[in-house]
Amino acid sequence: MTDTPAAARRTPDRPLVVLENVNKHFGELHVLKDINLTVHEGEVVVVIGPSGSGKSTLCRTINRLETFESGRIAINGTELPDEGKELARLRADVGMVFQSFNLFAHKTILENVTLGPMKVRGMKPAAAKEHAMELLTRVGVDHQASKYPAQLSGGQQQRVAIARSLAMEPTVMLFDEPTSALDPEMINEVLDVMTELARSGMTMVVVTHEMGFARKAADRVVFMSDGAIVEENTPEQFFTNAQSARAKDFLGKILTH
């Protein structure tokens, strides 16, 4: 693994995820305020910000697990359709990793990874299984393939969740606080897989509190506060020379420990 500068491995700025003036309310609360964000192919965007700043909502809105009221979101040039088959097809191309893993509790690890390729992509069971085993090997849980999610540690479950998303061969992957529910000693095994994924050129939107990961793997850091994007910059610039008072205050609180 080499530390190729992010800009070098990026294909010439093809926008993959585009959000334009996206607004969303939870009742009275304005959780997304005029969000404009473009994620290019191969880019790793890390979204950080205080709790309740709307960063998880932003992540979930991109594949429409959350609805929004105004604005538009397009993935790979296609605007998000309403609920239905079209949306399901689009979601298949967008990987999602949740804070609470959400592995299918009644299916084995292997079945978790093969379900999507077989049901959505129409893959043959043997081919799906072979592909799944490759991915499970890649994330280091191949020897647990016949177990059930509840028998695995949190870190292992989250790595399986990443493999489950990868099995769909997504064009972009969304991570919604993937390490927030993990015991401290398991965080790194998940971050390692994510870093490896970032280096392999996967387009990623990562909501996280892991500043080390943001510094190491991000091409761009997006700082959110109170439902709005306050600042965007390279990790270098953001962590050493934040522009807004809100970001300085946030960094001051988390980086002094």
């Binding site: 697990l65 097809r89 967008v94 990987g95 949740f98 592995l103 999507g116 969740a161």
Partner: peptide, 11 residues
Amino acid sequence: GQAEAARSIGL
């Protein structure tokens, strides 16, 4: 989350 995960893989 189970239903969300199901939807997110495109089911």
